[in-house]
Write a protein that binds this DNA or RNA. Structure first.
Lengths: 114, 114
DNA sequence: AAACTGTTTAGAACCATTCTAATCAGTTGA
DNA sequence: TCAACTGATTAGAATGGTTCTAAACAGTTT
């Protein structure tokens, strides 16, 4: 519950478990990192947050659960939402026999201009 | 060199470091997993393979380095190429100030029908 | 053939994530 | 009122994918 409150206060944002743990610590919450992970999994299952896979090595979570895509800043390893309908896909292949599409993830990886 | 030969023989495919290590072991190569990782990083840098991030928890590599996208089978945790121009993006947002697009990754996550 | 140098290798360390057993809180029954 | 029971919550310890670093190797020079 304390974590939900923290996320509500933070508004739409992207974060790792580690970062949320730090935020909780700063706000005086004495919570272990394992508990943060447990909570985040429950939040994901409940549809409160969305997990985004962009970086092997650590998972990112997003409090914005609406259908949208992301910029990923390779230097800072940070995420940013892509506004509304800035990405338009005009053709998608049929999913293979016996499967249905669960989600389409688009990540635009950007780096500092030279 | 032995790893490159193995990948050549296997043709276009997707694999984890663990899987390549097993393949090498089966072909009689006595190589540690760490060496496989070292080699894969060099291969990636040299443009011989491409790293694909779809699954927090383990990295996937792809011997097909041409510009293409993927199906990801959530149940089997396996990848499959999407043929040629089956994905058409008709609108992409401008990258944020001071950055340039490095790559656009599209992953269609599929699961078994019902 | 000893000394030196850059390359290759893998054992050990690292760290993000998960597991499991302990703690806690709430409820029942004596 | 409070022990016994039950499910929810928590975090310490274990796990496992990945990286680091120091050792082994090979090739070259003196």
């Amino acid at each position: 519950m304390a974590l939900i409150k923290l996320l509500r206060e933070a508004g739409d944002c992207h974060f790792t478990a580690e970062q949320l743990h730090e935020l909780a610590a700063k706000s005086g919450q004495r919570i272990s990192l394992a508990t943060v992970y447990n909570a985040l999994h429950q939040f994901t299952e409940a549809g409160l947050v969305r997990e985004i896979v962009v970086d092997s090595g650590s998972s990112y979570f997003d409090t914005n659960t609406s259908d949208h895509h992301h910029f990923f800043f390779e230097d800072r390893r940070a995420l940013e939402d892509i506004e509304g309908n800035d990405v338009v896909i005009s053709a998608l292949p049929e999913p293979p026999e016996g499967t249905t599409v669960d989600r389409v993830d688009i990540v635009i990886r950007v780096k500092p201009s030279h």
